[in-house]
């Protein structure tokens, strides 16, 4: 069934380009897989800015620093609300939060469609769970707030040069990194919209990865980029409120070995989230200084944050 409201491609369908190195035994060009150059506890640099979409109540843009040839996460988020619910909606004593996560068609290696798929709906539910714990919903009865997240560039599950290897390592690692970014950027957008929250929520990821050539060396890393690792064994995302020391969302996946327990993994993810909080604070401060210039004079300037979990 074709979508008659959009412009469709050839009816027989098209195939994504197949690169020679993925098929032949002796490729002419051997691409080397990217490797992690950061310390295991070091996060990628985060660029976070609010006020991207002037017509919305609040908006934010998040980008992670590029490393060599790799992609980086690029996410925009707009928050529309609080605004009155339509007349037809039933009474709600609390703010009705609705979240949408959509990948752009060009966000991943394989082209995505315009209609939301199950992975995107799943991410939206995770995001909603994370945000519901921070927003003070009872301050806005009979109101709604739409949080719309658009992923311009996501994270891949594996390095795309290694097609055979990607199949056996499972899926969904990239989504976990995207979720952590979504939580942080949505938090910034909600702050920009001026919706009261109990605390700043940030997302953090930690993963157990397999390093090295032949020997099995399991390492715990913060803010993993799945494409940089030979294999990801387990990963955990948390939505964390730093000053209250609360977790509103945990998503864990994979098989952590005996040496590394699940508690440890969650703890590391919390560490990553706590390190991200400094960036979020600085972005909100920056936005506040633009709105209230006299505040900037009294508080001094801004500084870049050194992130270590």
């Amino acid at each position: 069934m074709t979508d008659r409201r959009r412009i469709n491609g050839p009816p027989s369908g098209t195939q994504t380009p197949i690169f020679a190195s993925t098929l032949k035994q002796t490729p002419t060009v051997r691409l080397s897989p990217p490797t992690r150059t950061r310390e295991p506890t070091e996060l990628r640099k985060i660029f976070l800015k609010t006020g991207l979409v002037p017509s919305s109540s609040g908006s934010a843009y998040l980008e992670l620093q590029h490393s060599s040839q790799l992609t980086s996460l690029k996410i925009t988020c707009t928050a529309h609300g609080p605004r009155p619910l339509p007349r037809s909606a039933p009474f709600s004593p609390q703010l009705v939060l609705s979240t949408t996560v959509k990948f752009a068609p060009f966000a991943s290696r394989v082209r995505r469609g315009y209609v939301r798929d199950s992975a995107e709906r799943d991410l939206a539910v995770h995001l909603e769970t994370a945000l519901r714990g921070v927003v003070l919903g009872d301050r806005w009865p009979k109101s709604g707030c739409d949080v719309v997240v658009t992923v311009l560039e996501g994270e891949e599950d594996a390095w795309w040069g290694d097609v055979a290897g990607a199949r056996e390592r499972g899926e969904g690692w990239g989504l976990m990194c995207v979720l952590a970014g979504c939580i942080t950027v949505a938090s910034a957008a909600i702050m920009d919209a001026g919706i009261d929250c109990v605390d700043l929520i940030t997302g953090g990821v930690a993963a157990v990865v397999e390093e090295g050539g032949g020997k099995r060396g399991e390492v715990m890393v913060l803010d993993p980029c799945p494409a940089e690792h030979r294999n990801v064994l387990a990963a955990c995302v948390v939505g964390y409120l730093a000053s209250r020391d609360e977790i509103t969302e945990v998503w864990m996946k994979g098989n952590a070995s005996a040496a590394i327990s699940a508690e440890e993994l969650i703890e590391k993810a919390v560490g990553a989230a706590a390190a991200t909080k400094a960036v979020l604070e600085e972005a909100i401060k920056e936005a506040a200084f633009v709105k209230f210039p006299e505040l900037a004079k009294s508080r001094g300037g801004l500084n870049d944050i050194d992130m270590n979990g």
Partner: peptide, 13 residues
């Protein structure tokens, strides 16, 4: 994409 308050996802184009 939430580009304006009236353009919210969930509807056909």
């Amino acid at each position: 994409t939430g580009s304006t308050p009236t353009n919210l996802p969930g509807n056909p184009p």
